[in-house]
């Protein structure tokens, strides 16, 4: 299965990835990313008929329960937060009311 030339909308990718990309860099990426994709597309030629063996590890989870005493890392973690309010990380409002 060979693909037709993928159309790469770098601006849309930047929105999806939450990254501000501007001006000259955007133009450069519009060339570089298709070039990289043209290279990695060589995998379409590989023979993939090999069986997939069952993995050795499956659904590795720790036991339910408290991994540590509540609050023991609070200060250490909050010390790294850009903004705090009491024992919480302060976050900008996510949903705002449309003013009519």
């Amino acid at each position: 299965m060979f693909m037709s030339e993928p159309k790469v909308d770098v601006r849309a990718l930047a929105v999806l990835a939450h990254i501000e990309v501007r001006g000259a860099e955007l133009e450069k990426l519009e060339q570089e990313i298709p070039n990289i994709l043209a290279f990695v597309e060589t995998i379409q030629k590989a023979d993939i008929s090999a069986d997939t063996p069952a993995p050795e590890l499956r659904n590795v989870m720790r036991d339910d329960g408290e991994p540590h005493e509540s609050g023991m890392y609070t200060e250490r973690l909050l010390a790294q937060a850009p903004a705090r309010k009491g024992d919480r990380i302060a976050v900008k409002q996510v949903i705002s009311r449309e003013k009519s």
Partner: peptide, 25 residues
């Protein structure tokens, strides 16, 4: 989000994140 990631990540990291976003889209 967008300004922090735009200013904080260097060119190669941004390039790979965008490439990764594409191949998973």
């Amino acid at each position: 989000y967008t300004k922090t990631r735009g200013a904080g990540f260097g060119r190669e990291v941004r390039r790979r994140i965008l490439l990764g976003t594409f191949v998973l889209s």
